[in-house]
Amino acid sequence: MSERQPLIELVNVSKEYRIRNRSNPFLKRSIRAVDGLSLAICPGEVFGLVGESGCGKSTTGQMLAGIFPPSSGEIRYRGKSVKQMTAEEKRAMRREIQIVLQDPYASLNPKRRIGWIVEEPLVIHTKLDRRERRKRVEEMMETVGLDAGYLSAFPHELSGGQRQRVNIAAALMLDSKFLVADEPVSALDVSIQSQILNLLKSLKETRNLTYLFISHDLNVVQYMSDRIGVMYLGRLVECGGVEDVYGDPRHPYTRALLSAVPSVAESARKRILLSGEVPSLLDPPSGCAFHTRCSRAAPVCAQAAPEMKQIGDGHWARCRFAEETGKE
């Protein structure tokens, strides 16, 4: 990471959800979907966030997009903390950060036409008249590669790939600078995935965008991202440049995760078969969240959660043995 000011920063952000206890309604339990997450994304970069179910990557993305606020911690945008922003500044920030959600089938209102959906951000945020709005919508449709004829169609008339383009179009209507892409291609066929990935890449270049690219597909993330973060049970366990993390993973979970990815290419990775299941968020392990499945776990791992250790330039891992875990 350079000395540039990060575009967006998460500082020790957590998100807790209250769960009602069935036997005793007064005793509330909570789960920490995101636990003490700190990361920084620089302008113009693609930050990939990976992890398996329950790791908190979607929650993180949605917090950044303003869908709900964090329970604790701070989000800083262009250096200023959101908590200290005026309503005006907040609104300006909301315009600049947009989200593209995973399921192209569920993320479009089935009762509204495409034109209405894409136009909505303009209706909410600007005072443009109808003609001007229509013009911008048509321009955007062209930018994302959709025929303007689709503006009067309903979502169910479009294919998965086309719907995803609509989502991207709606997300970019307000000239956003930061896009959270939550599993943007996971629900699409392989041959369509490449179309959407190419679109995202070219939009990034032409409009100078920054992405948080969330995915469980490690091949896609490796292709798209400049830097990546690996999450496990709400915590960030490793982050760094793509070559560093993929080439020299230091956290045992990252190593296991990368080795489990099926790939069409021949892989030289040693296969690590993890035992057991991802622990439930209702009953997280003490100390290091991964120690229950880790082959290198020592007694101390169950007692105290490790801090992030710097491995190299911009490469960090949350493990006591990160430095010793060299390339095997």
């Binding site: 190419n198 292709y223 793509v242």
Partner: peptide, 24 residues
Amino acid sequence: RQLLESIPTPQKRGRPLYTIPGVV
């Protein structure tokens, strides 16, 4: 062949992916 071309792999970083035109 075209399908394999369009799958993202580490070797293809930095350049656009091959896309199969059209849809099924």
